[in-house]
Design a protein around this nucleic acid. Structure first.
Lengths: 314, 314
DNA sequence: GAGGTCGATCGCCATTCTCGATCGGGAGGA
DNA sequence: TCCTCCCGATCGAGAATGGCGATCGACCTC
């Protein structure tokens, strides 16, 4: 019959370590916040479980046996390991602490993250933020497969089991050459795109689909099927090369676009809603709501924050 | 308020490790020989104790959280350490296994140990025998101070708290030159020593005191105060050099003493009783009695074993 | 031999562990 | 859309156990 240690409590291991340090039942018991009979009984229980004597007792002295020394040594290792567990748990008590894997779509990451990540790191020193830039569909899959804790994206999320908070409304602008016909207007109506060659991103970017539906409504057409861009920066270069115009979300705009100009739409401007999403079952929803609010409070003026739902108070 | 982990059971750590392996409450519970409600409740208790979620549950899947992964990793280390504790305990279940520190007096060690130590090691493979050769008074002190588990010596033990079992009666012989007057007798009476110069060991050897009292009774006298020997082998050389005669315990005799002869006394021969001693409180008394019996069964014919007390059976 | 110290033991109470039964919710199929 | 199955959570009851104060027995000191 094998020895079954599952019923052993960490307290018992603490008892034998304390006893080997104090060599005295009463003092060791006091150090463990129990009474001497308790320590005595628990030690006997442990010795019965192990089937060996751990301490040699007499009225003069309490000494570990040779085997007891070995067991106590291992018990110390066990308690050290549990100290680490306590450390992990304690840092987890703080809001936004510990590991957090955040996915961001490529048309958002480079433009939104600089606005809040440095402040976030400064505010929450224990946060171990891991960022991953992936397209929407992959991001949702990573969420579902527990490879991400939460994600920043710009699509209404149709998947059951994924919940989200809206963060802000990001209007689209039309990026066009300063010298072109469009650039003469201060504000565009969607119909102004009619007939324009609109440069779009590669397949898989949600921004492509959003721009495409806008184009269809405005009777514009996608330009150059063979030259789909893989990033907004590429689009910018293509516009500068005179290949057409493109749509840029507000955060991607530069203060000075050089030979180009970013034209806003008339209100209500077309745009996209950026949300923070996570699995409905994720136990750290409170953290995510705090993160959402932190992002809202660190937005540039070019986008309009959407107020979070008021928190229910217990 | 700090987290108190003392109430945590090794079973709970086993639960979370099993759950991280099976990703399924029912199967993990079966692997731990408990029911699913038990595992569910215990996990919740542990999460409440730590204050953090360890697993994210949904009806589709059970996945550790990022913090949970870390805790589980530490839990594995804890369980590994407890496996070692079990190993220590299990080897301790065998008779005469594990560390055993045995003291032996110098006039006994070199002559008695070869008769039983090799066989002992062969018979009890798990025994980790540590031998220390020390004089009687130091041996008793080492016993009292827990530096030794038990000791082989040849004195009636007056110290309360030390108990012993007698192993055998070891007769003394007189070692004398073959050509001397004594050598003409086959057996000696104690009075035959009268007038002889008897070479003795240095202070501190119990054999010295025993020989000395025999000499006093026989009106012999100690020879050469300035040349007290530090070992029986030195005594042998001194006898061979014609400096006198000496007393040797039976086990120290050689089959062929060369130019010397070992003369027995008439029955009842003077001698000494060799005993195995240990602290009364030592929890491994059963081991020591088994060791005593093993020694008795491996004695050469030159000494007479003393039967051990019959064991009380439960 | 009286008093003091120490670990072991006893009896009792409060807590907790465990179980079978059941609930509630989500997924998949008819 | 409803039904059924599967999963983890919850409930209620009984058993087991941890903890305590009080006390014992052994031993040491004065």
């Amino acid at each position: 019959m094998a020895i079954d240690l599952t019923a052993v409590t960490l307290a018992e291991l603490r008892y034998i370590v304390a006893l080997s340090e104090h060599r005295h039942f009463g003092r060791a018991a006091r150090a463990c916040n129990v009474t001497q009979p308790t320590l005595s009984a628990q030690l006997q229980k442990l010795e019965r479980t192990l089937g060996i004597a751990l301490f040699e007792r007499s009225s003069k002295s309490v000494q570990p046996t040779a085997q007891g020394e070995r067991v106590i040594e291992q018990a110390r290792l066990v308690l050290d390991a549990t100290d680490k567990i306590r450390d992990i748990a304690e840092s987890g008590h703080l809001p936004l602490a510990g590991p957090l894997r955040l996915g961001v779509i490529p048309t958002l990451g480079p433009y939104l993250l600089p606005h809040f990540v440095p402040a976030l790191r400064a505010e929450y020193a224990k946060l171990e933020l891991v960022l991953r830039e992936v397209k929407t569909s992959e991001l949702l899959d990573d969420l579902a497969q527990h490879r991400l804790d939460c994600g920043l994206l710009a699509t209404p999320i149709p998947i059951p089991g994924i919940v989200s908070e809206e963060l802000f409304e990001e209007p689209f602008h039309v990026l066009a050459p300063k010298e072109g016909a469009l650039a003469r207007k201060k504000q565009l109506a969607e119909e102004d795109l009619a007939g324009e060659r609109v440069l779009l991103l590669d397949e898989g970017h949600c921004l492509r689909d959003q721009a495409l539906s806008l184009c269809r409504a405005a009777h514009a057409h996608e330009s150059q099927q063979d030259f789909r861009a893989t990033s907004l920066e590429t689009l910018r270069h293509m516009v500068a090369a005179g290949m057409g115009v493109t749509l840029l979300p507000a955060l991607a705009l530069r203060r000075d676009e050089g030979a180009l100009v970013a034209l806003p739409f008339e209100k209500p401007s077309p745009g996209r809603r950026v949300t923070l999403a996570w699995r409905k079952t994720h136990p750290r929803a409170a953290d995510f709501r705090e993160l959402a609010q932190f992002i809202r409070l660190n937005l540039p003026p070019s986008v309009r924050a959407i107020a979070g739902k008021p928190r229910v108070r217990g």
